[in-house]
């Protein structure tokens, strides 16, 4: 019996923690992470209701029907089942699942499209991983960084993810959930940051020996500061060359690096006709690509 109460208080404890304190995932700094935190709290609360129901029923049965509480010659009855009880037991969970499904589907479309309510066009950043680093290419600004990411606040961010080796997963918990980066295609992750600040980013998908340290720093700043930074990089940073980039791809860890230009020029991302699943019909793929683009904007 004590155990049951311990469980109960523990789950309360967990939920208070979930809703209150500053666990990264529950301390969102962008619209996508906010939506996800909302889903988490909502589903956790509904689930808590189920947990409490089950625990109460169990405790009730254990208190009421212990053999030690009954007379020697009590013979438990034979009970087949009851239509009404079973309809309730099926009906309520079905209702809960329907509600959660509706929420889940809506959230899917929200996190899979550019965040709304921003005036500016999304900033496109190519984030590619190699053992055990992240390369961030800003095609619009024509600069590239390694292991750190500067982003403007209040502007949608469109990350184009791919990998130079094994499957990795690009994750900045406070801005939104993760997505895989693979070497034969490009995936898109839509994020945005609402508050300036420094955030933790990492590869979440195991990729070998250097996995634990496969992290990067994210710094969100107002658009003007971001532009200043870009200017500064353009004035001071070395250009990235094919040889230099090959060197960077070697397995190992690197500090933070900054370059002029992007590697995409000589080593394009696996999309469109450079995709890993190109089957020769590049015309078709291109068309499809541009029509997708058209519908997105």
């Amino acid at each position: 019996m004590k155990l049951k109460w311990a469980f109960l208080s523990l789950s309360f404890f967990v939920v208070t923690l979930l809703s209150g304190c500053n666990l990264l995932v529950l301390d969102p700094k962008g619209p996508q992470a906010e939506r996800q935190a909302h889903d988490i709290i909502l589903s956790a609360s509904i689930m808590l209701f189920i947990v409490i129901t089950v625990f109460s029923l169990l405790i009730y049965m254990l208190i009421k029907y212990r053999a030690s509480k009954q007379s020697e010659d009590y013979e438990p009855p034979y009970i087949e089942g009851n239509k009404w009880v079973e309809s309730i037991v099926i009906g309520i969970p079905v209702l809960i699942i329907v509600v959660l499904s509706i929420v889940s589907v809506r959230s899917n479309y929200i996190v899979e499209s550019a965040p709304e309510g921003y005036e500016e066009e999304p900033l496109v950043v190519y984030a590619s991983s190699s053992d055990w680093k992240w390369h961030f290419s800003y095609p619009e600004q024509d600069i590239e960084t390694v292991n750190y990411l500067y982003i403007p606040t209040n502007r949608p961010l469109e990350f184009k993810l791919y990998s130079h080796g094994s499957i990795t997963s690009f994750w900045i918990p406070q801005l939104g959930g993760q997505k895989y980066a693979m070497s034969d295609m490009v995936t898109t992750l839509h994020l945005a940051a609402d508050e300036p600040g420094e955030y933790m980013g990492r590869n979440a998908n195991f990729n070998g020996k250097g996995f634990a340290e496969n992290t990067f720093n994210v710094k969100a700043m107002p658009q003007a500061d971001f532009e200043d930074w870009v200017e500064e990089v353009k004035e001071t940073a070395e250009p990235i060359t094919e040889d230099k980039f090959q060197e960077l791809l070697e397995p190992g860890h690197l500090g933070q690096l900054t370059f002029n230009g992007t590697h995409l020029e000589f080593s394009p991302a696996p999309e469109g006709e450079n995709g890993g699943h190109q089957h020769g019909n590049s015309e078709h793929d291109k068309n499809q690509h541009s029509s997708e683009e058209a519908s997105e904007h």
Binding site: A33, Q36, D39, I40, L100, S107, I110, G177, Q178
Partner: peptide
């Protein structure tokens, strides 16, 4: 909840 799973995964 797939959207939330982006955070749990």
């Amino acid at each position: 909840m797939s959207a939330a799973d982006y955070q749990y995964h």
